[in-house]
Write a protein that binds this DNA or RNA. Structure first.
Lengths: 213, 213
DNA sequence: ACCTGAACACCGTTCAAGT
DNA sequence: ACCTGAACACCGTTCAAGT
């Protein structure tokens, strides 16, 4: 895939004087402004530099290339989410395992849905072009198929079968994609193979109405 | 985000003569060859055209822009995966709900891991730059935190606590990302909020060793 | 009906020159 | 120590001209 070594993605240098710290700050806010005003497709070094009131060359003093700037901003946001989770974890310490699991899920959802519009636009860059639409369609299709299958199970007693089918598709699709995307090690792939079917079974069994018999 | 309307992502015209069908085929295989040989970063219209033995202008007769070509190839692969799942569903029809869930998870994993290297490179384009590394780090960090938390639950009895923590992080991270990425409707987001904590609880409870008590 | 390729606009990146 | 901006290489896209 020819990725640049990760060292090249890091900022080129840290600011040594107040003037330069202000420049870096201006570049960052300019990036977000351009992103929100013009979208990812129009986020160019020239536009960011103009908005920040610096020359293009200045940007290249701090970041070796455009990707490094964007990567640095995303990484910062990822760390914010991670810290949010650490706080949540502290509050869950010592509670029962099931409650911990529930709490972590809720915390992650809260963290991600509260992310600023700007950073969601940054992630959107990752989707770049309309893969989202294609994936959405497949997800919809799978939900229908899964729901139909669940309906025909002899022990089927679901309060909201469509939601269970949807959740099943999202759990499967999301976790597989995440492991493959993060260049998952062989060990992690093996874990996924072992645990994902278990998790799906447990979820579906739990979603059955308790009065089943 | 300024995406082009999706109609623009579709092929511009269908081939009407045998000569032109062959041209289209050549463009497709050339795209894959360039992708494998040079990586996403070097996948340019000029390189694809040269490899396909046609001029650049010819490519623009079939696709209104480069993205349309790539999108069309990815969509085709998505449909292959979807069809694979339909087959698997047929084999699972009438079985018990828990078994169906397990079977679907396994089928999806099989479909995704058997995708050709070329298409994984295409998806990789979606990740474009090294977001994967950053996400991988956060995932690792979360796994550690989750595992620690599970260890301190009063009812903790896990055969492989680290795997459960990893799976939990992947289930949560993957499903949230998928719903947000596919521009999830409000309804789907509500479903996720309701079902994800349930699913996580069910998985963790099921992962406890049965002899617990 | 299909193909060509020079031409154009734009973009990321560099570097010699400035303060 | 930091900034500038003209210059360069490259890329996506178009269109008048061909068969």
């Amino acid at each position: 895939m020819n990725r640049p070594p990760s060292a090249l993605l890091k900022p080129r240098k840290a600011p040594q004087q107040a003037r330069s710290a202000a420049t870096l700050e201006a570049i960052h806010t300019a990036t977000i402004q351009v992103l929100l005003a013009q979208g990812v497709g129009r986020l160019t070094t020239a536009r960011v530099a103009e908005r920040a009131g610096v020359s293009i060359g200045t940007m290249y003093q701090y970041y070796p290339h455009k990707q490094a700037l964007l990567f640095s901003m995303i990484e910062q946001q990822l760390q914010t989410v991670a810290n949010f989770m650490l706080d949540a974890a502290e509050r869950l310490r010592g509670q029962e395992a099931g409650t911990v699991a529930e709490g972590l899920a809720t915390a992650w959802l809260d963290a991600k849905t509260s992310e600023s519009e700007a950073f969601r636009a940054l992630y959107g860059m990752v989707a770049e072009f309309d893969l989202a639409e294609g994936m959405g369609k497949v997800l919809e299709q799978m939900t229908l198929v899964f729901s139909d299958l669940l309906a025909q199970a002899p022990d089927a007693r679901f309060a909201d079968r469509d939601s269970v089918a949807f959740m099943l598709a999202v759990l499967i699709g999301g976790s597989v994609r995440m492991v493959l995307d993060t260049a998952g090690s062989e060990e992690n792939l093996a874990r996924l193979r072992r645990e994902l079917p278990r998790a799906c079974r447990a979820y579906v069994m739990a979603a059955q109405q308790c009065s089943a018999g």
